[in-house]
Each structure stands twice: as C-alpha cells, then as structure tokens.
C-alpha cells in the first residue's frame, strides 16, 4: 500500500498546479480551523457601520455588510461551514455510494438489478430539483444540507464502485479469499476497497467541489442555514446589493471559486499521480 501511494504523492507534489491547490486548501483549512481564535465572537454580530467598502476602514479589511457585519470574519467563519458541508456531504455520498455500489457489484443478480434501478432513478431525476424538495422537507440547517447533498451525490460513486467491483470480483485473489472463508465484508474492505481507492479519492475531490457549489446555489435560492454564516449564505444575503455593493457577493464568490478550484486541481493532480502512464503513452 505505502509503496504504491508515496510515489503517487511525490508525483502529486511535483505537479505545480496541484501543489498550488494543495497549499491554498491547507491555508483555507487552517483559517477555518482557527477562525474562533482569529475572530472570536459571533461572525453575525453587528458591530461596525453598515456597508463599509473593503479598505475603507482597515479594522475591517474586507468591509462590512448591510448590517455592519465584518466580511473578513464572515469569510473566515464561513469557510468552516462551507468546507464542513462540502467535505461531510461528499463523505456521506461516498460512503453511501460505496456501500450500495459494492453490494450491487459484489452480489450481482437480483440485488444488483434492484440497486441498479435505484441508481438509475436517482440519475434520471433532475438532481437540483430533488435537492430543493429534500431541503424543503427537512428544512435548511447545516446537518440537513449535508444529508440532502449527500443523498443526491451518491449515484456517481455507486456506479463507479459497482463497475470496479464487478471487474475484480472474479479475479483469483478474491476467489481465493472466498474459498478461505473470509466474510463478504472483510473481502470488500480488505481486497476490493484498496483497488478502487485511487478512483474514489479523485471522485471525492470533485464531489467536494460540487457540494460547495450546491450549498451556494441553495443559499442563493434562500435555502441556507440562517444561524451560521457560510460563503453561500453570504452571497445569498448580499445579492440584493449586487449593484450597490458588489464586493458582498464577489468576495465570498471568490472564496468559493478558489476553494472549488483547489479541489479540482488536486483531483486532476491525483488522476495524473495515480495513472502516471496515461499521459506518457501519448507522447
């Protein structure tokens, strides 16, 4: 395992765009983690004059919003929620997809047929409409957003996992493991999973990116958590002032953009790192 992963990691670190993504992501994660220390107090607190432009008052370097809330504090604290939603929703989606895909691929037959129909159902429905319906039912809060985004993002993973599992389940080492009497769960966890891990990691990094985007789109439609500031909710509450104070949407928009970009760059870097032969073959 280690022998396989570390050259991949080394290749990842040698890729300049992926490295840039990684560095940015680490920085934003640190900011988010240490937000309560950097900006103690509620980021929704209304302390300053309303609608200060960035740079107008260096106490509030990124300005303040219509209620006099510090945009910088919002961005830092908002990163916590956005990353939390992005990462946890993807994790939930990956786990769900992994479970369903592995079961379908491993057992085959009727189970596979049924689960495949389920995957198809979720892939045929317009996902954002389903997301809106789900959020309307459970009512927007951070945990429910994570749940709803996870629910609509698992099918991609499930398809992927199912295909991989099907392709390797007849291989000798799996058959051997089976004949030794290992349990299904153990075989899946120990023999099948490591094989699909690289693909999963790549998919997950892209899923985080789209989960962050989905959270922002939901907030834009007014379906975000009102108690916690997130980049999406900052855009949502600043969009009425898009003409008078465009920085209120542009700054969190930029934060979303850069974070999503970072995840995508890392995802691309990982693809290259895990398949070092692919690009070389064409040369």
């Amino acid at each position: 395992m280690n022998a396989r992963r570390s050259p991949a990691l080394r290749r990842l670190l040698r890729n300049p765009t992926a490295l840039a993504g990684l560095i940015f992501l680490i920085a934003i994660t640190l900011l988010a983690v240490f937000a309560p220390l950097l900006y103690p107090g509620d980021p929704l607190g209304m302390e300053a004059d309303a609608l200060l432009w960035p740079g107008q008052d260096w106490h509030y370097p990124l300005g303040t919003d219509a209620l006099g809330r510090d945009v910088m504090a919002g961005v830092v604290h908002g990163g916590r929620v956005s990353l939390q939603v992005g990462i946890l929703a993807s994790l939930f989606g990956v786990l769900l997809g992994l479970a369903i895909g592995a079961v379908a691929g491993y057992f085959g037959g009727k189970v596979d047929y049924g689960l495949q129909r389920l995957i198809e159902i979720f892939q045929t429905m317009p996902s954002f409409v389903l997301l809106v319906a789900l959020v309307a039912i459970v009512q927007p809060s951070v945990p429910t957003l994570i749940f709803a985004i996870g629910i609509i993002s698992w099918p991609t993973v499930a398809r992927l996992v199912r295909a991989e599992v099907r392709s390797i389940r007849e291989r000798e080492y799996i058959l051997a493991a089976r004949s030794v009497g290992y349990s299904h769960l153990r075989i899946i966890a120990h023999e099948v999973l490591p094989n699909i891990l690289p693909t999963l990691i790549v998919t997950a990094s892209i899923m985080v990116a789209s989960a962050v985007l989905m959270e922002s789109a939901l907030s834009f439609m007014g379906l975000g958590d009102p108690n916690q500031v997130s980049w999406g909710s900052m855009i949502g509450s600043g969009r009425e002032q898009i003409r008078t104070a465009w920085y209120l949407t542009a700054i969190p928009g930029l934060a979303i953009f850069l974070t999503v970009l970072a995840f995508n760059l890392i995802g691309d870097g990982l693809t290259d790192a895990f398949n070092p032969t692919r690009d070389r073959a064409s040369k």
């Binding site: 309307a136 009512q139 927007p140 809060s141 007014g222 009102p226």
Partner: peptide, 9 residues
C-alpha cells in the same frame, strides 16, 4: 435560534 423554512412549512 433562527429557523429558516419555506412558506408552506
């Protein structure tokens, strides 16, 4: 605590 929901809810 603020609660956000749609109109029907």
């Amino acid at each position: 605590t603020l609660r956000s929901q749609d109109f029907a809810s």
